[in-house]
């Protein structure tokens, strides 16, 4: 009687599968976290301590001076203003680029999924095809285009470029999400007399908060981390933070201040990280929602 199975099945805490899974996860986590650990510890060490060569050691004397210097007074070779100008430039570039690209792409996706026109599938295919062409190929033509438009080397130029390059992936994202919404809702709204914009703003957008969150995260991360377009199209006075960071790290004056470089790198990467930590939950949910239907 005693040995007869009864009630919940006893679970083994450690079985071979579990050990495998955890093993792989732990190795992967170390692989990704080790560089971060080195960056953080190094940024809080003084230069003499760094020179001793123990990159894995915790700082003996914790100092935040490198952080202050990275933000405020690190030299790029020309100026000694630190990252702060770059930070604000990045903010000024990112906000309008995110808003404009998402505004256009969401309407694109809506039109492509709900108001199919002759050739809409071809249009969509061409648009998606664009995302498979390496950016570098299009760099020079785009320089000419922006020059002709008179926006090369300006804030408008870089916003224009980010909007264009956000278009394929964002349109795909929005189109698939809108296609996953029940078609009958769209029909009901048409019977109720709502037009193209009425249905979009009153019916579709309120139901699409998750995918807008995804798009915002995707764009903030992408645009903030961009280096190539920033250095080519933004113009010297609008250089984003990434370009500024590169100039600081690569300036060959005096000693290489590893601690300042590390602090500057963390500061540059902080914005997308914070955005992700605050909204990662919605990001995963939204990506999954958009992926259901093609």
């Amino acid at each position: 009687m005693m040995n007869e199975p009864y009630g919940p099945r006893p679970g083994k805490i450690l079985n071979p599968t579990r050990i495998m899974v955890y093993g792989v996860l732990i190795v992967a986590a170390i692989y990704y976290l080790l560089p971060l650990y080195i960056m953080i510890t190094t940024s809080m060490k003084g230069l003499p301590e760094i020179r001793m060569g123990n990159i894995f050691a915790l700082p003996v004397e914790v100092t935040f001076a490198p952080w202050a210097k990275a933000w405020d007074s690190a030299c790029t070779g020309l100026y000694c203003e630190g990252l702060k100008t770059g930070f604000w430039n990045s903010v000024i570039i990112t906000i309008p680029s995110v808003i404009v690209s998402i505004a256009i792409a969401s309407v694109n996706g809506y039109a492509l999924s709900n108001w199919k026109f002759k050739g809409s599938e071809v249009f969509f295919t061409i648009l998606i095809f664009g995302s498979f062409i390496p950016f570098q190929v299009m760099l020079y033509p785009l320089v000419i285009v922006t020059r002709e438009l008179g926006i090369f080397g300006s804030l408008w130029g870089i916003i224009f470029i980010h909007t264009i390059f956000g278009m394929p992936i964002l349109t795909l994202l929005f189109r698939n999400y809108f296609a996953s919404l029940p078609e009958e809702l769209f029909k009901a709204a048409r019977v109720d007399g709502a037009g193209f914009w009425g249905i979009f703003f009153k019916i579709m957008v309120p139901m699409s908060v998750p995918i807008f969150v995804v798009a915002v995260i995707l764009q903030i991360t992408g645009i903030w981390n961009d280096f190539l377009f920033g250095v080519v199209f933004a113009g010297t006075e609008n250089f984003p933070m990434t370009v500024q960071l590169n100039n600081i790290v690569n300036s060959k004056q005096g000693v290489t201040e590893y601690n300042v470089n590390m602090a500057a790198t963390i500061l540059t990467g902080a914005v997308p990280l914070i955005v992700y930590f605050l909204s990662g939950k919605y990001f995963v949910r939204g990506i999954a929602a958009g992926a259901v239907k093609g």
Partner: peptide
Amino acid sequence: PKERGIGMVFQSYALY
């Protein structure tokens, strides 16, 4: 549809 003087009820209700 709006100019036809029709109202429609759907299988999935289609409430906003």
